[in-house]
Design a protein around this nucleic acid. Sequence first.
DNA 1: ATCCTTGCAAATTCTTTGCAGTTAA
DNA 2: TTAACTGCAAAGAATTTGCAAGGAT
Lengths: 136, 136
Amino acid sequence: MQYTGLLKQHSLKVTPQRTAILNEIEKAGHIDIDHLIEILRSSFPSISLATVYKNVNHMYETGILEVIKVPKHKLQYELMKEPHIHLACDQCGSVTDMHQCLDELIDSAETKSGFSLHHSSVVLNGTCPSCQTKSA
Amino acid sequence: MQYTGLLKQHSLKVTPQRTAILNEIEKAGHIDIDHLIEILRSSFPSISLATVYKNVNHMYETGILEVIKVPKHKLQYELMKEPHIHLACDQCGSVTDMHQCLDELIDSAETKSGFSLHHSSVVLNGTCPSCQTKSA
DNA sequence: ATCCTTGCAAATTCTTTGCAGTTAA
DNA sequence: TTAACTGCAAAGAATTTGCAAGGAT
């Protein structure tokens, strides 16, 4: 299983629920708790919401997952990757990643502010191309 | 009252509660619902949490307020201003604004993605200078 | 006069916790 | 073996809603 190593690195035991959670988040890119458990139930009919919450929280705390908040939507989870930009569509709620380099921005902010930065959450809101077409 | 015009522009009636909410948010820079109602109660002992929620939601929807989410903290409200960067300290939870220009970033994202962007939420997480000193 | 807002209480929604049984290491 | 994980049920937070009285335009 491809996530075994990742879990072990962070001192989390490898359980079927956990590898399934990581697989589904990977597949979805971004996903909120409701969609996540809905999908998980097809493989684990008795999985509990509490388990999913406990796990995503653990994974967030250990740095496996990233959490993003888009106004008007529930928290969304994704695998921790390079700093990048999230484009959120106000109409359909979809989130798209854009891997533009943020190093310059972060370095400059660090220097000017004296903060020691280790994480970034950049969410740009607007209308996605597909929703622009629909409303045109 | 300085916020009368702002409320009217957005078709919200001018009430003492609303101008007080805007004044306190302005004074605080960033504030969450608990701190906000705590301060408001000193002038409006009987103000209800429901009223504050209804108002910040309305003001958010009409574009008067901006909402930012820092992991592990409640939603924070601030007056809608120029796009800028939020520096969030993981230790003390404080949020500092940095008015670095984001136009380039936004323009570039818009061009590459085809999104039509109208709002940005840039939160950089780390440790503020004061907390760095404490833990040193 | 009319529609909007307030504040209360209740309802909902969201998330966490305690515990007993089970499982990974 | 033992410390961690799961699932259930219940508790606890956070937020929203319905409604009657009051207020802004």
